[in-house]
Simulated assay, not measured.
Amino acid sequence: MRKFGQLLSAMIYQNIAVIIVVGIIRGIFGIYGYFYNDRILLLVNPIYHTLLPILLAYTGGRLLGGQRGAVVSAVVTYGFTLASSVPIIIGAMMIGPFVGWMIDYIERKIKDKIPVGYELLILNTLTAIVGVVLTIVCFLYVGQILSFAIKSINNFIQAIINSWWLPFSAFLIEPGKVLFFNNIINYGILSPLGIQQAKEIGKSIFFLLESNPGPGLGVLLAYWLKTRNEKRKIVGLSMFIHFIGGIHEIYFPFVLRNWKLMLAVIGGGITGNIIFQSFGGGLV
């Protein structure tokens, strides 16, 4: 699970600049931006629908299948984008690593059986054949199925956001963070959902749920009030690193040292989520 979380994390943060570019464009030139410009906004949909999914899949394919895995993942995902009526960011994060792993597996199985001097020709040809088959299948069949699934997920998510169940996601998020599953929760689940929702309504509450530093700050503040001397200095530095630096992992050992504090971070998470939801909070 940890390796899977690291893979998802790498796919997102290696392409984070593209996501920020879209956020800045929408924030400045969007409907609620400072300088509304419908012509500049024409850049947004192609980035969401085509460029970002391809980059995510390319990165996932490269991490597991090298350059050939990256190229095939990008081509297959392009077939996805042409067949889908919605952004397939979540689908790209699944298909990229899968295709990369498949290419790597095929290469390892046949590499020793290829005559010397024919490696480049045979491996590239075989890779192309795999790419052709997967691209056609995704274009004709998988794209439509995935579009329907993503639309259903979006409707379900919107229903949850409009209900009062969302704050209680802290029962899963906060213990998961403390057990060092924060990357899986954030990059594997919440960030793709947030990107998808931001495309639809211009902002997303999902960017705030795991990244909220409030519960961790509360725990560290309590430790700071109860400790003295050198320990207090250490906790004070931890507060700065956590709240200003954004490094959640700094407070996890404090909770693991006293399991009763798990209730504290869950309560803090629920409180923060209620505030976000009540005031229509979200990030672009």
Score class of each variant (00 low, 15 high):
residue 110 I to G: 05
residue 111 K to W: 12
residue 112 D to S: 13
residue 113 K to Q: 12
residue 113 K to I: 09
residue 114 I to P: 05
residue 114 I to C: 04
residue 115 P to D: 14
residue 116 V to W: 09
residue 117 G to V: 08
residue 117 G to Q: 07
residue 118 Y to K: 09
residue 119 E to W: 07
residue 119 E to Q: 13
residue 120 L to M: 14
residue 121 L to T: 08
residue 121 L to R: 02
residue 122 I to N: 06
residue 123 L to I: 06
residue 123 L to G: 04
residue 123 L to T: 03
residue 123 L to V: 04
residue 125 T to C: 09
residue 125 T to F: 15
residue 129 I to R: 01
residue 131 G to M: 00
residue 134 L to T: 03
residue 135 T to C: 03
residue 135 T to M: 03
residue 138 C to D: 12
residue 139 F to E: 12
residue 140 L to D: 13
residue 143 G to V: 00
residue 143 G to E: 00
residue 145 I to N: 13
residue 149 A to F: 02
residue 152 S to K: 14
residue 153 I to D: 04
residue 154 N to H: 14
residue 155 N to K: 14
residue 156 F to S: 14
residue 156 F to H: 10
residue 157 I to C: 13
residue 157 I to V: 15
residue 159 A to R: 11
residue 159 A to W: 15
residue 160 I to K: 06
residue 161 I to C: 08
residue 162 N to T: 12
residue 163 S to T: 11
residue 164 W to C: 02
residue 164 W to A: 00
residue 164 W to H: 07
residue 164 W to N: 08
residue 165 W to A: 13
residue 166 L to D: 09
residue 168 F to P: 08
residue 172 L to D: 03
residue 172 L to I: 06
residue 173 I to R: 08
residue 175 P to M: 01
residue 176 G to P: 03
residue 176 G to R: 02
residue 176 G to Y: 01
residue 178 V to H: 00
residue 178 V to F: 01
residue 178 V to W: 01
residue 179 L to W: 07
residue 180 F to L: 12
residue 181 F to V: 08
residue 182 N to S: 13
residue 182 N to C: 06
residue 182 N to V: 02
residue 183 N to A: 07
residue 184 I to F: 01
residue 185 I to M: 11
residue 186 N to C: 04
residue 187 Y to L: 02
residue 188 G to Q: 03
residue 190 L to G: 00
residue 192 P to K: 03
residue 192 P to F: 08
residue 195 I to T: 00
residue 195 I to M: 06
